[in-house]
Design a protein around this nucleic acid. Structure first.
Lengths: 210, 210
DNA sequence: GTCTATATTTCGATAGAC
DNA sequence: GTCTATCGAAATATAGAC
């Protein structure tokens, strides 16, 4: 579940650890400097190889970003299925809350990838413009936005759902800089409480799960 | 209050409308393509002039972004003062709610500028790394983050405040694409209600203002 | 203020040896 | 798999005429 096959490539040395190292360094640099401002020379330097070596593993610079995008995409796969079940009948706040619960876990566990997507929004958009976007494998965020645009759901509730998503991102993305050394899981639990208040106004919190 | 002096430049033709036109086009292109992917050639082309003409108005490309940043900064100036009064004693949810109320208006009225900041986060960061950032003229977002890091405020409430900010942004930024032709002011009112629920859990809404 | 060059730099990408 | 060397494109920025 961690990788998506992509085992068409040959290998002789380093068995494939270089490819992973490239992705790790790229993820870090893309997050701190941005995708465009990060050159292949910089990535190669940090890795201790030359630019040309990168081209053995990735045909284009864009493909590095694409691979990172795929990982984020596979993370959202489970969520999108749950979204489908919601779409059919029950747009209840409870179903959405359950979805958020899962989403929060994903964000905490893969903060870097979500940060990448948020901080390089434009680069990702162009990525999907180039990759001719065959079918329904939309971005997670795009699917969520399309869901929030559903006209059959009352506007007030759609706005509530949008706010709840923003609340989760707002609290968890900058968490490292703002909440210091407080463990992310603790922040996540607080956020869960808050999303409950947000979606179930004027309803007291249920007691903690045993 | 709209512009910040910057009247050191000479002028012979076009009295200064070109400068404004450059900023308008740049803002649009930066939002759709990103700051890095937008070339001066592209801006000039759209304006109907040549690249060199831009350099009469802005010494560097970075200065175009900087000017846009300053406008966003001046918008936040009032808010930061209000923040200062909160910082002294009362960290009450009501004071924060009042701040949010003002913030929501700002975001609705200047959606493009806030979008610019969100979609080009990395470019803005490098901007403040270059411009040696003399004193306390931080970014609005940076000031808010520093405030949310205040250790004297209980953690649970700090997370609530972070969530409320995220909720506002989450609902208002993508509003155009998600909520279709619903006027932004209507969304804003819904968001106000939601932020109330978020900061005053289990408390019924006060009746609408007369 | 705006133009026509042109300088300078950096980047993504390729070719071919090892 | 990684290297050296290099190409070609595009971008920022400058010089100087009008």
């Amino acid at each position: 579940m961690a990788h998506h096959d992509v085992r068409t490539q040959p290998r002789r040395k380093r068995d494939g650890s270089t490819r992973e190292a490239i992705l790790d360094i790229a993820l870090e640099l893309f997050n701190t400097q941005g995708y465009d401002k990060t050159s292949l020379r910089e990535i190669a330097e940090r890795l201790g190889v030359t630019k040309a070596a990168l081209y053995y593993h990735f045909a284009r610079k864009e493909d590095i970003l694409l691979e990172l995008h795929l990982r984020l995409h596979s993370l959202g796969h489970d969520m999108l299925e749950r979204l489908g079940t919601i779409d059919n009948a029950q747009h209840s706040p409870d179903a959405w809350l359950e979805l958020l619960d899962f989403f929060i876990d994903q964000v905490v566990a893969n903060q870097d990838l979500f940060l990448l997507h948020q901080r390089n929004h434009n680069a990702f958009e162009e990525l999907e413009r180039t990759e001719h976007h065959d079918a329904d494998h939309d971005d997670l965020q795009q699917q969520l936005q399309r869901f929030l645009a559903t006209p059959t759901i009352p506007l007030a509730q759609r706005v509530r759902m949008a706010c709840s998503l923003g609340a989760v991102m707002g609290a968890l993305m900058g968490a490292n800089h703002v909440f210091g050394d407080v463990p992310a899981t603790q922040i996540a639990d607080l956020v869960r409480t808050i999303t409950h208040d947000l979606l179930h106004p004027n309803t007291p919190q249920p007691s903690l799960k045993p």
